[in-house]
Design a protein around this nucleic acid. Structure first.
Lengths: 226, 226
DNA sequence: ATTGACAAGATCGTATACGTTTTGCAATGA
DNA sequence: TCATTGCAAAACGTATACGATCTTGTCAAT
């Protein structure tokens, strides 16, 4: 396209990384889709080199897979990997919550409560997963450990919309909501151990539901993909 | 150098990534050292492009830092970050141990015990940290969650020899050894909860010792580096 | 002696170019 | 009809080249 002035700030690969990442996480780019380097390059008006750098970064993040001499594709998660990732979530989120509870203040409870109300009133399943994420994050944020929070987000990224579809479809609204309220109540009481125990059960149940959901969809979801 | 036949297998950035990673983790490349792209390129007999890709991957891993237009340097960890990473270790390793205990068999206990004996007999402080790592990993391996194990290794990588020096120097041999034996005993008894509790204390104590050690060394270690 | 301006060299970041490998497809033969 | 062979085009991966920016050393002015 037009030769823009090129103001030479940070790297050109950064916006490409962000754009691809958003497209993968949102599901606009489905698993297995090939990522043609020169297509992406011309879409962004750059050469292949920043594109390759962005793809390499996504590869490290687990969102993209390189096959030698055959380019990159959007990574397809296996059933096993999804369950493993939920297990990691379990560990990280419980720890974050444990650290967060003693640091929580009134406004934290208020915000969390508001999210739950919005959640309950929301008819669109699409947005449930979003509200779910927001609720969880809002509980972890006071933990004060930025790396831990980043890591939790990373795991969520890796699971992408796989979880987001499976879980919210499989779990419905009622059960998670009840558990969310119980967790928030424990936080209000300033009882980290109880809150962590509830969170643990919450995520374990989710894990089992995802496992069941995968078992049912079984081979189908792989074969008739796209 | 010599134009080798170029057998065009996987990417040229892979060996560079491995080499740089090993140099950083081993401490041969200290924190803050600039990583000149064309120097590395000519050392490996390639152009800058695969070097940049390797550096980007290391950046995602947290081992390298890019400053715009000023190239890459080996990432220097702050005191805060080290403590945060130990906290993440705490979460991941306790979960791994919890999952591993029910899967352990006799040979696992034997191997772990042998490492501890070797540990106890080892006079060289240099090797303590190595044996420490091996002991821990050997406990986690039966957990069956490959991502979790990979993540634990990644965290260890990020802490690099910072931990390895500080901790083993600060902790000495006696205290960790006692705790290791207690943890192993709990595993033998098939008591995951107890084992996890002991592991948790073990890592928390380590964290406190590192905090103290950093507090003492304070600014010095940053200013008079290299 | 310290400060500031400036020029030369070093270094970065990316576009372009090119050899290599994969892939799609048509022609051939069974 | 189906499998096989042989291109031609597409796509990959990297070396080279080049402008932009940063660093460093020199020198004049305060």
């Amino acid at each position: 396209m037009a030769n823009r002035p090129r103001l030479m700030g940070a790297s050109l690969s950064d916006p490409i990384y962000e754009a691809l990442r958003a497209d993968i996480l949102s599901g606009r780019l489905a698993g297995g889709v090939p990522l043609r380097q020169d297509v992406i390059a011309s879409e962004h008006g750059v050469s292949k080199i920043p594109v390759r750098e962005a793809l390499r970064q996504l590869e490290m993040e687990g969102l993209v897979e390189f096959r030698p001499r055959r380019g990159a594709i959007v990574r397809q998660l296996t059933e096993k990997e999804v369950l493993e990732l939920i297990d990691i979530r379990l560990a990280l989120e419980c720890r974050a919550l444990e650290l967060a509870v003693p640091n929580m203040i009134d406004s934290d409870f208020t915000v969390a409560g508001e999210i739950l109300e919005e959640y309950e009133a929301e008819p669109s399943r699409e947005r449930w997963s979003d509200l779910n994420l927001r609720f969880h994050h809002c509980l972890y944020e006071p933990c004060g450990n930025l790396r831990l929070l980043a890591m939790i987000s990373e795991i969520e990224g890796r699971m992408g919309l796989f979880m987001r579809l499976k879980v919210t479809e499989a779990s419905g609204l009622e059960r998670p909501m009840r558990e969310h309220r119980a967790i928030l109540a424990a936080c209000r009481r300033g009882a980290p151990k109880e809150a962590v125990g509830l969170m643990r059960q919450h995520i374990e149940t989710t894990q089992k539901e995802v496992a069941a959901s995968i078992r049912r969809a079984s081979i189908r979801s792989v074969t008739d993909g796209a």
